[in-house]
């Protein structure tokens, strides 16, 4: 387990408006998504996170508990917290139903404000998608 302190600070300060414990839980989710943390692997303790990000350990614990509540992490008494078997799927589903839905909502709202037609909007999405697909 290694980390870069400069990088850690950037991650936390990039969007100061989001509560830190939410940012911590999102960072752990990203670590699971990109394979840095695998199923049944032990995750960072609240004290490790506190030291990594220079935050209060209670804040770090709140971020971890958020993921325990969602069953993305599970607790082993006296041993710490571990990544659930289905963690990746759960994160994907959550992000689909919450984050992506929210982004689409914003997209549609902005298109409405700019008086862009549905067809035009779909065109833009398709163009973007083919660009991502080509990479």
């Amino acid at each position: 387990m290694h980390y870069n302190r400069e990088e850690a600070e950037v991650i936390l300060n990039a969007d100061g408006s989001k509560p830190i414990y939410v940012q911590i839980s999102e960072w752990i989710e990203t670590e699971i998504m990109n394979g840095h943390l695998e199923s049944d692997q032990k995750v960072y303790s609240q004290y490790q996170l506190a030291e990594m990000y220079t935050i209060n350990p209670a804040t770090a614990a709140k971020g971890l508990n958020l993921l325990v509540d969602e069953n993305i992490l599970y607790k082993k008494r006296g041993l710490g917290m571990f990544v659930s078997q289905m963690a990746k799927e759960m994160i994907v589903n959550k992000r689909k139903s919450q984050t992506l839905k929210r982004l689409v909502q914003e997209l549609v709202l902005e298109a409405h404000r700019l008086q862009i037609s549905e067809a035009e909007l779909m065109e833009m999405i398709k163009a973007e998608q083919s660009e991502v697909g080509n990479e």
């Binding site: 100061g16 830190i20 990000y53 935050i55 209060n56 209670a58």
Partner: peptide
């Protein structure tokens, strides 16, 4: 406060 808030409980 913005300087110390991360440290606080």
């Amino acid at each position: 406060l913005n300087e110390i808030e991360d440290l606080l409980e």
